[in-house]
Design a protein around this nucleic acid. Structure first.
Length: 559
RNA sequence: GCGCCCGUAGCUCAGGGGAUAGAGCGCUGGCCUCCGGAGCCAGAAGCGCAGGUUCGAUUCCUGCCGGGCGCACCA
C-alpha cells in the first residue's frame, strides 16, 4: 500500500478533470497539460500536498498564475472524503489540505502488512546487480566494503520496489593479473624454501601472499619445488584462488552479503564466449587489426580512443572478457543490468556501453554506479589502499573495529557520488555516537514499551476495531505522515538508484519517534488513547525494522 | 592538456527548478518523583566565484577556481 502514490493519483485525477473542463470550454488556452508536480511541501503550513500546474501554464495561457489557480480550484469536482480545503498561495501554488482520516488508516495497514510494509507489487522486471567483484588476489579493502554495502542495499531496495533481483559477484580468475599473482606466489614459495627467487616487478607484495604460501607449504610441503615453473605456478594459483574465494565469501557473509551467483571469468574462456564475441564484432566491422593487436572502435560510440581487445601476443584483454560477460548477462534475460564500480573504472563505462550497442542491445539497459573512492585515515594520516603495498585495512578489520551494522550504515548513508573520508580513529572513538545506534535505539525503545504493555496484559497490537482519531498531537501526526512515506521512499530510492535515501528516512523517523516519546506517554493513558498509541508504536517499530533490514542492519529488541 | 565526479553550517554529509535550504558531531543554555537520558527542547552559523536559461536557480547550462579519479597491448 503506497498511501502517498494513491493520494497523488487521486488529486491528479481531480486536477486533470478541472483542467479538461476549462480547456474544453475555451476558458483556458492550453495545447497540452504540462507535466506538473504534486509534492509534499517542506513547510507544513503549505498544506499536505502542493501543485505547481498554474505557474507552468501561465505563459501559454497568457494569464496570471494565481488567476489560473483560482479557475482550477473553482472547477475541482467535490470530493468530501479526502480534501478538506484548498488554498492558493505564493506565486500560484495550489495547496491541498487533507482530512486527517486517511492518516488514521496508516498504522493498521502497516500492522497487517508487517514485514511486507514498504514492498511494492511485483513488476516483472528482471534486474541484476553486480558488485564488489574484487580481484581474488588480495584482501577486501574499504572500496570493496563501500561497494558491498551500496550494491547489497540497492539490490534489497530494488527487490522491495517490485523488481526481480539477482546479486552477482564476477570472479576475475583469468588474465594478466592472475599470471602476475602466480609469479608473486612462486617468488614467495621459493623464498620461504630458501631457494633463489625473483620478485616480479610490480608484483603482489602483500603479507597475505606470504600467508597463503605458508598455508600451501603446511598442506603440501615442498613437493611443488620439483615441478616445472609453469606447473608449479598453476598449483599455487589454484590453491590460492580457492583460499581467496573462500575468504571473500566468508567475509562478505559476515558483512551481511549473500550472492545469488558467483560468475567466473574463466568460464567465458572455457566456453569460447570471449573468442566468439570478438569474432562476431570483427565480422560486424566493430573490431579491426592494427600493429598485430585487435581494437574495438569505441570512438564510434563517443569514447575518446579505441580500445585493445586482443593483444599482439594473442591474449585477450579484460575488456574482451567484459564484453562477453555483459552479452552473457543480457542473454540470461535481464532487462536491467546495474554494475557498482569504483571511480577508478569510470573510463571503462563509455566503451562498455559502446560494446553493448554494437551487439544490438540498448545501452541504457546498463547502469553503472560510479562510486567515489574511500579515503582512509588513521591518526590523521592518509592510509594508501594499494593492494601491492600491503598496508591496507581490510574489511575484516573494519568489521572488528566498528561492527557490521555501523559500517554498512555509514557507507550507505552517503551518496555513491560523494567522496568518503573514513577516519578509523574517529570511527572507533565515536562508535557509541554512530547514527546507526540512534535508529536502533528507537526500535529497542518501542520494543521495551510493547514488552511492558504485554506484561500488563494489554493486547499488542490492539484490536483492529479501535479508532485512531484520538491521535491529534503534532508529534503523532508527524509520525503518521512519515510512516506513510516509506513505500514512496523505497520507490524513489530504487528509481534513482539512491540507496542513501533509506538511512536518511530511518534517521528521520527515529527522530520523530524520540521526539514523540519525550512529549507523550503511551502506557498509563486512558484505554482508547493508550491503544491508539500502541498501534502507532507497533507501526513505527515495523517500519524501522523493515528499513534497517533493507540496509542489512540489525534491529535489536534490547541494546 | 582532455574526460568523469565533488565543492552546501567550524567538521562530516543530506537535499535539489519553487514559497522560510536540513541532519549528526562540536559549541551555548535548559529537561529524568515519568513507558530505556544511547533520549528530548531551545540558540548561533551555510549553497566556491562569475555569467546565462526561467515567472522562479542552491538545483539546469557555460566559464573560472579548488579537490579526487581516469586518459596502458593493467584491471
Amino acid at each position: 500500500m503506497n498511501f502517498i502514490e494513491s493520494i497523488k493519483t487521486r488529486l491528479r485525477n481531480l486536477i486533470d478533470q478541472s483542467l479538461r473542463n476549462l480547456t474544453d470550454k475555451g476558458e483556458l488556452k492550453c495545447s497540452a497539460i504540462p507535466p506538473y508536480v504534486i509534492e509534499v511541501p517542506r513547510e507544513k503550513n503549505h498544506g499536505d500536498f502542493a501543485v505547481n500546474v498554474a505557474m507552468l501554464m501561465a505563459r501559454e495561457a497568457g494569464m496570471a498564475p494565481r488567476k489560473i489557480a483560482e479557475m482550477i480550484v473553482a472547477g475541482l469536482p467535490a470530493d468530501d472524503s479526502l480534501v478538506s480545503r484548498v488554498e492558493i498561495a505564493g506565486a500560484g501554488f495550489i495547496n491541498f489540505y487533507l482530512d486527517n482520516r486517511w492518516l488514521y488508516q496508516v498504522p493498521y495497514a502497516i500492522i497487517q502488512q508487517g514485514d511486507d510494509y514498504g514492498r511494492a507489487d511485483k513488476n516483472g522486471i528482471k534486474v541484476q546487480v553486480e558488485f564488489v567483484s574484487a580481484n581474488p588476489t588480495g584482501d577486501l579493502h574499504m572500496g570493496n566494503a563501500r561497494g558491498g554495502a551500496i550494491g547489497d542495499t540497492l539490490a534489497n531496495i530494488l527487490d522491495a520496489a517490485g523488481y526481480e533481483v539477482e546479486k552477482e559477484f564476477y570472479v576475475n580468475d583469468s588474465g594478466n593479473q592472475i599470471e602476475l599473482f602466480g609469479l608473486s606466489l612462486e617468488a614467495r614459495y621459493l623464498e620461504l624454501l630458501g631457494e633463489p627467487f625473483d620478485m616480479p616487478e610490480s608484483g603482489y607484495a602483500g603479507q597475505d601472499v606470504v600467508d597463503t604460501v605458508k598455508e600451501a607449504l603446511e598442506e603440501y610441503g615442498d613437493r611443488w619445488l620439483a615441478l616445472k615453473p609453469a606447473e608449479r605456478r598453476l598449483k599455487l594459483i589454484n590453491f590460492a584462488l580457492e583460499r581467496r574465494l573462500e575468504y571473500i565469501k566468508k567475509t562478505l557473509s559476515r558483512f551481511g552479503i549473500e550472492y545469488d551467483v558467483w560468475f567466473k571469468e574463466s568460464s567465458l574462456y572455457n566456453s569460447n564466449a570471449v573468442d566468439e564475441v570478438i569474432q562476431r564484432l570483427f565480422e560486424m566491422g566493430y573490431i579491426y587489426e592494427n600493429e598485430g593487436a585487435r581494437w574495438f572502435k569505441s570512438t564510434l560510440f563517443g569514447d575518446e580512443k579505441d580500445e585493445v581487445v586482443v593483444r599482439n601476443n594473442g591474449i585477450p584483454t579484460y575488456f574482451a572478457a567484459d564484453i562477453a560477460y555483459h552479452l552473457n548477462k543480457f542473454q540470461r534475460g535481464f532487462d536491467w543490468v546495474i554494475n557498482v564500480w569504483g571511480a577508478d573504472h569510470h573510463g571503462h563505462v563509455a566503451r562498455m556501453k559502446g560494446a553493448i550497442s554494437a551487439l544490438g542491445y540498448d545501452p541504457d539497459r546498463l547502469d553503472v554506479i560510479i562510486m567515489q573512492l574511500v579515503r582512509l585515515y588513521r591518526s590523521g594520516e592518509i592510509v594508501r589502499m594499494s593492494k601491492r603495498t600491503g598496508t591496507l585495512v581490510t574489511l575484516d578489520e573494519l568489521i572488528e573495529e566498528v561492527g557490521k551494522d555501523a559500517a554498512r550504515f555509514f557507507f550507505v548513508q552517503r551518496s555513491p557520488d560523494s567522496h568518503l573520508d573514513f577516519d578509523l580513529e574517529l570511527a572507533k572513538k565515536e562508535s557509541q555516537d554512530n547514527p546507526v545506534y540512534y535508529a536502533q535505539y528507537a526500535h529497542a525503545r518501542i520494543c521495551s514499551i510493547l514488552r511492558q504493555a504485554k506484561a500488563q496484559g494489554i493486547s499488542v497490537p490492539p484490536a483492529l476495531s479501535n479508532e485512531l482519531e484520538v491521535l491529534v498531537e503534532e508529534e503523532e501526526l508527524d509520525l503518521l505522515r512519515r510512516l506513510a512515506d516509506f513505500p514512496e521512499e523505497v520507490r524513489l530510492a530504487a528509481d534513482n538508484m539512491a540507496p542513501q535515501r533509506i538511512p536518511h528516512f530511518v534517521l528521520d523517523l527515529a527522530g520523530l519517534l524520540h521526539s514523540f516519546y519525550n512529549h507523550h506517554r503511551v502506557l498509563g493513558e486512558n484505554t482508547e488513547l493508550r491503544d491508539a498509541r500502541l498501534a502507532l508504536m507497533e507501526a513505527v517499530r515495523i517500519t524501522v525494522n523493515n528499513a534497517l533490514t533493507m540496509l542489512g542492519v540489525s534491529a535489536p529488541e534490547r541494546m
